[in-house]
Design a protein around this nucleic acid. Structure first.
Lengths: 232, 232
DNA sequence: GTCTATAGTTTGATAGAC
DNA sequence: GTCTATCAAACTATAGAC
């Protein structure tokens, strides 16, 4: 159904970005302005993740880049623009991968497993963005204007994808019918994203390991032996 | 043993608070100073939860209470003191309940179920504190001094309680031995606390309902039919 | 593209009258 | 216990030199 932030462009290409690109030209040459800009965004994202968006000052961002705060405004017109770019970049990538997994097809359990893997595999490359999204979601949403409305639109699209597969799995008898699809989706989603707080690849488990562990418990449960369904 | 923030008091009473009480006298008469103080803490907690700790100004807190910002400093010596009280009150209550559940005894699955219920039942009364703890944990921990060290001590004690029961369950054959206890604990913990973002009693599910739903999926899994263990 | 310099706000906290 | 008044510090953002 197109991107969550495209007001025009009603055509339904699955590559529609969450937000329209800031610019379509330049991005080719090495050492380009957009590379510099991306670098600054990454530095800022790490600070936002570590200290929170509001607690991070433009002075700190600039200092991290070895320049003065005033110089930052040559690249960005506000602090909000920076965090905006952090979040929309992540959401574009994530939703793109989810769409691809759905287009790939397969039975619900396979697709759901793949979506779990996509989530965990995003923890490492998008650590900062995911942290910011969780910690500063409420604040960013509370800002005046509709600048961050795309966050909710992206969230809605993702929810539809997950819940659709859970329901499909129940319809074909692959998932137990006595669980609430939306509730189950939220618990899966939350426990994946919140793992960004403690998961570090290179520990006992790598990204694939944690995803497999999670899929195992999710589908087959923690208990041993036969099912002991205590539900009516 | 003992409380996580008691530097003296080496005796191991299970009622040891996370932080020493601010005062032990007064708290009896109606309309007391401590009631007024508690009321202000609650107002502040709601604002902290909604906007974030740093984004909430002392002026807003005061305005919510119908006084001016300067007057707040008759009750608290700093904004940090207020959030400190929000969090330590919650942790005292939570850890007290966990300890009671452990002392009650029972098999690991029963105890774990009870601990899940305790968590979900805390969402409603401690909504603001739980939200603040999740969103502002990093920032509070980054402040100079050891004021919020008790957060980590409390976290550690809770982790020991959960992991201990999971390991016990594996030892007695009640839980599958091929899951990582610490990893499993973290996923349970995270998916309970993060539910504070969307769970509202009075919706389709009440507190007991969501706890049962969660326990069902946790122990028995999402899949139907026999176990399809895909692990070595 | 960065620096200097600073405008214009807002913040947490304090002192003292009442 | 609240208000008045205010301070010192910090903040985002801007303007113009280089």
């Amino acid at each position: 159904m197109g991107g969550v932030n495209t007001r025009k462009n009603s055509g339904g290409a699955t590559t529609t970005p969450v937000k329209r690109q800031r610019t379509t030209k330049r991005a080719a040459s090495a050492g380009s302005a957009s590379e510099r800009r991306d670098h600054l965004v990454r530095l800022a994202a790490d600070l936002f993740a570590r200290k929170g968006f509001q607690a991070t000052t433009v002075r700190e961002i600039a200092e991290e880049a070895g320049i003065l705060s005033g110089s930052l405004y040559h690249h960005f017109d506000s602090k909000e623009t920076i965090v905006d770019e952090v979040l929309s970049t992540f959401l574009d990538d994530l939703i793109g991968r989810y769409r691809a997994a759905l287009e790939q097809g397969g039975d619900p359990r396979s697709i759901l497993s793949e979506m779990v893997r996509i989530g965990f595999s995003a923890l490492e490359p998008h650590r900062a963005a995911i942290t910011v999204m969780q910690n500063d979601w409420n604040y960013l949403r509370s800002l005046p204007g509709d600048r961050f409305d795309y966050l909710v639109r992206a969230e809605d699209e993702v929810e539809r994808m997950w819940v659709g597969q859970i329901k499909r799995g129940q319809a074909v008898g692959q998932f137990r019918p006595d669980v609430d699809p939306k509730l189950t989706y939220r618990m899966i989603r939350d426990s994946i994203w919140v793992a960004v707080r403690w998961f570090r690849p290179g520990g006992r488990l790598d990204t694939d390991g944690i995803a497999e562990h999670y899929v195992t418990v999710l589908f087959d449960g923690l208990a041993t032996g036969e099912r002991t369904s205590q539900r009516g």
